[in-house]
Amino acid sequence: MLKAKNLIVGYRKAICEPLSFSFEDGKCIMLTGPNGSGKSTLLKTLAGLIPPVSGKFSSNGRVVMVPTHIPKVKGFTVKEFILTGMLQASGMFGRLRPSAEKAADEAIDALGLGSLESQDLSRISDGEFQKACMATALTNEASVLLLDEPTAFLDVDNRIMVLSTLRSLARESGTTVMFSTHDISDGAKYSDAEISLLKH
């Protein structure tokens, strides 16, 4: 569940009109709008990274945001990358609890990354890397997953793969997914609802 009432986002100054919405669990929402309309700012606000200018929002669990650009660092396998994101589940000297390993394996299975888990990040495609980032969000027990332009810079095949993964993830795990995109035609095929922002 993701709710907002008269939410105005911006960096101290409003950059969009007041927003009110309510989405049930398991919904996949597309966020569109021209550059500078406040898509990233809205996602960052919902993730709790920046405060709202005014208004309220709430969710029924942890909100996790996957940023636009995460560098693909050489020397990490896909599984190591996912485990790296589980710092909060680690104890002294960074040793992971067995439950964390299990959660990582479950996330890898859920996103169909099993065949890639031993691959170095530098050897996988950008689309596959996006899936690994989503798996990291899942291991952090996200009930709301926010993605800032997950299909930017991807070719058609990878774009479709990422969008279909997002929709399946929302339907199968009950996670509320919100992603921003400029690719309205493909995004609309794989989303249940849409928020369009206009420049203020």
């Binding site: 560098p71 790296t84 000297f93």
Partner: peptide, 23 residues
């Protein structure tokens, strides 16, 4: 360094990724 080793791993992926991992 040993206590911080996972944090150092995360820092390689940037500050935004650290925020994603709640670090």
């Amino acid at each position: 360094a040993e206590c911080n080793s996972r944090g150092l791993d995360i820092s390689l992926f940037g500050d935004e990724y650290a925020a994603l991992a709640g670090v």
